[in-house]
Design a binder for these strands. Sequence first.
DNA 1: TGTTAATTGATAATGATTATCAATATCAAT
DNA 2: ATTGATATTGATAATCATTATCAATTAACA
Lengths: 146, 146
Amino acid sequence: MSQDTGQQRLRIWKRILREHDLRLTPARKAVMEILTGCDRPLTAQEIHDRARDHRHSLGIASVYRTLDTLSDLDLIQRIHHLQGCEAYGPALTGHKHFLICTECERMVAFPGWDELDDYFKAEGEKRGYQVKDHWLQLFGVCPECQ
Amino acid sequence: MSQDTGQQRLRIWKRILREHDLRLTPARKAVMEILTGCDRPLTAQEIHDRARDHRHSLGIASVYRTLDTLSDLDLIQRIHHLQGCEAYGPALTGHKHFLICTECERMVAFPGWDELDDYFKAEGEKRGYQVKDHWLQLFGVCPECQ
DNA sequence: TGTTAATTGATAATGATTATCAATATCAAT
DNA sequence: ATTGATATTGATAATCATTATCAATTAACA
């Protein structure tokens, strides 16, 4: 029987907040519930809207603040679209990247590749750069949208 | 003797504009001169500032319009930073990506890898996705900033 | 249950981008 | 070169996203 991974992640996030002496407030819980359960990038505004559907009185400023907090804790990461605007999704543990549907924005993760890192590092060194990080996103069409 | 590739690129861009029945105006020339000669991502505001240093009366709206135009023609591409905001840089011909210095933002291009495409496509197919595009940026520290 | 400091929501302030529109300038035709 | 049709411009207003401010609230702990 498959556990809901969103629930699991939520529990972990709450523990990490406590470990950092951050209070577990309704506003933070609402944002976290939405983010741990989502399968596509969400903007601050979208998170705000979704939270309001279930709870009242969640300020948009608190959404931004919670996003910053979760981002500092590396629990979420920014997602860039081809056409500009940004959104957030849960951060991936281990070396993983996102594949995002250009139609419905649904996203799935796929594993990185060790040889990839070596290649990136080598390409950087050729040019005198110390490669610290890379940003990789795949764009395509998901099964439902084909 | 090495030609200034910026100058070359500028000539090509002007030709492409004409081929698309787009007029060669001072505003567009100014934005293109700056972009073809730049070695780091520039925001619309930065382009506006630089243009004003050399020419007067370039409206910020025209900068945005020209960026859209050049983007539609695939002459420039958006650059995303790890921390949110966006900028533009000249688009790369062929299959190339950017390596950006996290200190000074200077960027260099490096070639893509055919096996990489195959890998991306395969990872997508495993999940039922048709992979159309990928977004890859490397971040590191350039020789001067080390 | 009371205390204290972190956190919140409402709102003002800021900053970036887009829309509007009359004035201007490009380019082709003459 | 001049002209005319129309794409383009700059200034500004409007919109939208994000950040700052601050008094009121509340989570966490004794």
